[in-house]
Amino acid sequence: MSPLLVSAFVLACTFGATLLAVLAARLLPTGHLTGASKETIHAIMGIMALLAAVVLGLLIYSAKTSFDTKDTEFRHASAKVVLLDRVLAHYGPDAGPARGHLREAVQRKLAALNPKALPADHGSEATFVAIEAIQDEIRGFQPTTDAQRWLKDRALAVSSDIAEARWFLLDDLDSTMPMPFLVVLVFWLALIFFSHGLFAPPNVTVLSLMLFCAVSLSAAIYLMLEMNNSLEGPISISTEPLGRALERLGR
């Protein structure tokens, strides 16, 4: 389910619970909504609201941290690609085929991540397979000088770093929130809105304010899910570093 649909569902549940509470307040006996009942319900819901706020805050923080980590990994992997190309360039003409294969691998990755940036079909070979093939080529180098031996070892080390960069190699890295966890969180929020709706005056001002609060909560959950879904949507990791790296390859 897309983050937008989930946030719309959260909005419907929370504000729907408010409207249901307003209706229930008219049907319940008057004694059920006395001052003592109001104090008790608000005290219990205060604890529930605090718990929900802490959980939602931690989820947003976790999603933002995960998003930043993925972005950093992607930028580092892109920089390593340029570094590997320069090391191979210094090795000499024998590294020409490996440099060409590296450029092809980067083109395939960029086309997979951002078809608009590079819509051409560059083959279906997985990027990690291409990196392993480049490593095999590097291992086959026959250095004749100490400088070439050092460059060969350096190229193998850098290519190993790229091979370990999960963000550069894999597409399916997005975090997913377990659905039962999300259902429980939405239930808490709906219950909180329901409890306040029981005692809220059914006028336009109050209902409008509660609607804005419901929209704010659904927007927070939308942001959290969007940051977890870091490959698509308006909040996604930029492929610009990889595009800039591709422009520098082969120079």
Rank of each mutant, 00 (worst) to 15 (best):
Leu189Tyr: 04
Met177Trp: 10
Ser195Leu: 03
Ser160Thr: 10
Ala163Asp: 05
Leu207Asp: 00
Ser208Asp: 06
Leu191Arg: 12
Ser208Val: 10
Val206Gln: 05
Pro178Gln: 08
Leu170Trp: 15
Val215Leu: 11
Leu223Phe: 14
Thr176Ile: 12
Trp167Asp: 11
Pro178Lys: 13
Leu198Arg: 02
Asp174His: 13
Ile192Phe: 01
Ser159Gly: 02
Val215Glu: 06
Ala220Asp: 15
Phe199Gln: 04
Ala163Phe: 03
Val204Asn: 13
Val206Phe: 04
Leu191Trp: 10
Ile162Asp: 00
Ser160Phe: 09
Ser160Gln: 11
Leu191Asp: 08
Leu209Thr: 11
Ser208Thr: 14
Trp167Glu: 11
Leu207Ala: 05
Ser160Tyr: 10
Ala157Ser: 14
Leu191Cys: 14
Leu211Trp: 01
Leu191Val: 07
Ser218Thr: 07
Leu169Trp: 08
Leu207Ser: 05
Phe193Ala: 06
Phe168Ser: 00
Thr176Met: 10
Leu189His: 01
Pro201Met: 12
Thr176Tyr: 10
Leu182Pro: 02
Val204Leu: 14
Leu156Phe: 01
Leu209Arg: 14
Tyr222Asp: 06
Leu191Ser: 14
Ile162His: 02
Asp161Trp: 06
Ala155Val: 04
Asp161Gly: 04
Ala157Lys: 10
Leu207Arg: 05
Ala165Ile: 00
Leu182Ile: 03
Val183Thr: 10
Phe199Thr: 01
Val183Leu: 12
Ala214Phe: 02
Asn203Met: 11
Leu185Tyr: 04
Asp161Lys: 09
Ala220Leu: 15
Val215Ile: 13
Ala165His: 00
Phe199Trp: 02
Met177Ser: 12
Phe199Gly: 03
Asp174Ala: 11
Leu156Pro: 00
Phe168Tyr: 05
Thr205Ile: 13
Phe181Tyr: 15
Phe194Pro: 04
Ile192Val: 08
Ser195His: 04
Thr205Gly: 12
Pro180Met: 05
Val215Cys: 08
Phe187Pro: 06
Ile162Gln: 01
Ala220Phe: 14
His196Thr: 10
Leu209Tyr: 10
Phe194Trp: 10
Phe168Cys: 01
Asn203Arg: 11
Pro201Asn: 13
Gly197Phe: 04
Ile221Ser: 02
Pro178Met: 06
Ser175Ile: 06
Leu156Arg: 02
Leu170Tyr: 15
Tyr222Val: 01
Thr205Asn: 13
Pro178Gly: 09
Tyr222Lys: 03
Phe181Ser: 14
Leu191Gly: 15
Asp172Gln: 11
Ser160Ile: 04
Asp161Arg: 08
Ser195Val: 04
Met179Phe: 13
Leu217Gly: 13
Met177Tyr: 11
Tyr222Cys: 05
Met177Gly: 09
Ala165Gln: 00
Leu173Ile: 09
Ala157Trp: 08
Gly197Gln: 01
Gly197Glu: 01
Ala200Ser: 09
Ala214Ile: 03
Thr176Trp: 11
His196Met: 14
Tyr222Ala: 06
Asp174Gln: 13
Leu198Ala: 02
Pro202Asn: 10
Leu189Ile: 09
Trp188Ile: 07
Leu209Met: 13
Trp167Ala: 07
Met177Ile: 14
Pro201Val: 12
Ile221Gln: 03
Glu164Tyr: 12
Leu182Tyr: 07
Trp167Arg: 02
Thr205Glu: 12
Ile192Leu: 07
Ser218Cys: 07
Leu189Ser: 04
Leu198Trp: 02
Ala200Asp: 08
